[in-house]
Structures are given as structure tokens and as C-alpha cells.
Design a protein around this nucleic acid. Sequence first.
RNA 1: GUGAUCGUAGCUCAGUUGGUUAGAGCGCUAGAUUGUGGCUCUAGAGGUCGGGGGUUCGAAUCCCCUCUUUCACCCCA
Length: 450
Amino acid sequence: MSKPSIPKGTRDFLPIETARRNYIFDTIRNVYKKYGYAPIETPAMENLSTLLGKYGDEGDKLLFKILNSGDAFAGIQSTALNDSNALALQVCEKGLRYDLTVPFARFVVQHQSELVFPFKRYQLQPVWRADRPQKGRYREFYQCDADVIGSTSLLNEVELVQIIDEVFLTLDIDVVVKINNRKVLSGIAEIIGEADKLIDITVAIDKMDKVGLEAVKQELLAKGIAPQAIEQLQPILELHGNNDEKLTKLQTILQPSATGTLGVQELKTIFDYLKTLQIKQTLELDLSLARGLNYYTGAIFEVKAGGVEMGSITGGGRYDDLTGIFGLKNMSGVGISFGADRIYDVLLQLDKFPSTAAESTRVLFFNLGEAEERQALQYVQQLRSKNIVAEIYPDRAKLKKQFEYADRRTIPFAAIVGEDELKTNTISLKNLKTGEQQVVSIDALFQLVK
RNA sequence: GUGAUCGUAGCUCAGUUGGUUAGAGCGCUAGAUUGUGGCUCUAGAGGUCGGGGGUUCGAAUCCCCUCUUUCACCCCA
């Protein structure tokens, strides 16, 4: 293969794409800052021991592992080749981060003495997963996380929903914010007598939207859930009405479960606060929302865009003991993560990028010779000092070529300084859109191109 | 990990049941036009047909493997 290429599932970004991506990052960052979150960064690679076992068996398979530097295979017996998984662990001590939450937990434990709790941080960085690429799924993509750790207050959940609301309002996307609670799901599993199958149940009912009730029941049956338990589950999954009505019914159903009742209380509190804050986006209590990551213990969130086929574009939830695995107990946290790459795809499909996300040079000075370029250089510097983006064509090329360059860069003004203009201290300024041209002074030019 | 799918010039694509030197449009370079772009005309450059192996007198075309594209499942942002 002679053509250059990049690894599967990765992408290059052209100037227009980068400008648009920055628009998304800037929007999210500004909202995070507005709510008092502080930025941090962590390395692209973590010790494999930090990452392994945190995302389930599936997650472990999707970790990118990094071969040890030096002679990584020194001392490896040929018999080790029989077990490639074990071999990988012998020759790889590091891996690329899979998300931002687990590295954040590690960060909090490691820097606990330097941090002020409750600690509110945001982090916009790429993560890597060795997944098969498909629609809205890449092997390298950005997560834009905000978390509060060291506080169990539900005000944090409320704040994160406010942030979601404000970000999508700014981006001008209509979304549905789905909210559920892991305690409620635990309570449901408990009262149908299948508490030990909580994960199987959540994974199955998470697909309600996509495959429908019957397929979910099939999957539950296949996972060994008792038929009568599934019958008990059905009315809960089919709960309807507005959020308040659902909560009232749920409270009755979950009465026998202490955990479930607590979950309902938490949801009630969150919805109650949000009601007083005039949230613009649609909030929906969705009992089929489960989310795969097993570390969630309380509220869980997921955001879907209206009018486009796309997986969730934001997700999050509360985790009571994420730092526990790194040796720090009693550190409850709650966080959200915006999927910038999917938001990009959604904005593109809905044609919602502002045109300002693409603007660049205002004036191009043509290059007609040495004396001319010396003068043009002066003008360009003066324009820049007035914050007008200007540049000079670097080569003494034919005018045709210089015009075509300006055209393709969509630069609105061409400034020509040749022999005649040099003598009279003037500039021929041409508006490339209208074709109008006039001979002006540099002061007049400032006004015209502003 | 499972199942499909794509790959021919910089880009978008033709290419007959396997048969001489693989084409078009756009783009690029030069000229018509040595200080005025977008239109037009003329000429030119550019391809080991994704890579490797096989069948055949002969492969872009048929077979196998592999990489890549896109999509679904699993899982997930």
C-alpha cells in the first residue's frame, strides 16, 4: 500500500472541521466554567492495572494496550504463546485511557491532599476504544466530562441537568434528557425476586427503545429470569403518564424495597428542584434507562437529540464508590460526559453550525515585486495591529494565481500594491464578491474591510 | 468478537462472457492573456486497478488470504 493512511476508526480534521469542533468544545467549556468547574488533564496512557476490570469483561477487551518499551519480549518462554491474553499482560504495562472517569478517580485518590472537596472538575480530552467503527462510533473520540466528587447532595445532580440544558440550548439542539436511578432498578429487581440478576436485567431493559417489549422479554428469559418475574416486571416497564404520575405509581410498587423507595425519593427531589428552575429541554423519567457502566449507584442520565438517528450524545450518573478501588473510601461522585464527536454529527445533520465557525482572513495583499512586497508588509502589520486578519501572498506569482488563491480561501478582499500605487501611496482594493475595485488610502482601507 | 459491504488518476466514477497501450468529468500544470480571478479554448502531467498469493497462454475482471470503507449485532459516547 503506497498511499498514506491512518489507523482504522481515527480521523483527520480539515480547517473547517476543526473550527466547528472548537465551537462545540468552547461552548461546553464555557458552561462548565460558568458553573465553577476547574479544568484538569490526565495522560493519554495509564497503567493497565488502573484500567483493567473497571469496565467489565467487554471493556477489558476494548482497551488499547501499549507494548513495553525496550525488549518487551525478553525472557518470554515460547509456551507463553499459547495464551495470548496472558502474554499481553506480560509485555504490556500501559494502556490508552478508555474514558475520563476512571482516570479521574485515580487522580482524586493520588492528589487527595492537594484538592479541595467537594471537588468540581471538568476535562475535555480524547479517549480510545478498540471497537469496530460504525455510525457515530470511532476508535478515537473526545469526551467532555464534568464531575463533582466528595458530596452526596442531590443539588449536584440538579446542577448537572442545568448544565446539560444550557449547553444544548446554546448549541440550538432540541434534546430529551432521560433520567432514572439505579436504586429504583435495584428495588425492581428485588421485588420481582431476581436481585442477583440486576445487571442482566438492566442490560436487557436498556434496549426497550430499540427492540421493543417482546424482544426484551425474550432476552430476559434467555438470561434465566423466571417467567413470573418477567410478568411482574412488565407493568413497571409500561408505566406511563407524566413524571409525577410515574413517580407516584412507582412509590407504591416499590414500597416493599427500602433501596427502591430511597431511589424514588431521590428522583422526586431532583425533579422537584428542576421544576423550579424552568429547564427548557424535555425531562423524562425513563425506567428503561439503565446504562451499561456498572459503577453507577444512584441517578443516571442520558441525552438523545430530537430529529436524528444517533445514539446517546451525553450520559452520566452517580457513583458512590469509584475511588474505593484505588483505596479512598466514602467519596461519592456524580458526573456527566458530552460526546463531542456525536454532537458534531448531529449539528451537521441538522445544519446548525453558525457560519462564524469558519471565518478567517479578511484581506489578502498581492505580491508584485520586491519594493511592492516591502510596502505590503507594512500595511499588513498595520491591519493586524487593528485586529483585522490580513496576509500577504508569499510568492511573486501571476495575478491569476493570486486571485484564485484568494477565491478558494474565500477571502473577501484583495489589496493590490503595484508600481502605480507605490508612487501615490495608495492601494487598489477589490471586493472579490462584487468585483468592485477602488483606489484608496490605507486609512480608508481600514474602514472598508472592517 | 459475529455477520454483511466497499476499494480503479488528487476527487467522483465508467470499464463488455477474462483478450492489444485501463478511460471520462472535475481538479492540477502550462499557454491563448508579461497589473486583474470566476467563463471559454488548446496542450500536458498524473494509475504496479488497496496489498499478497493462486487459476490461466493471458486477470482491474475468477478463487483464497489480508488491509481499508460503510453498516448491523454485542457493547457503547
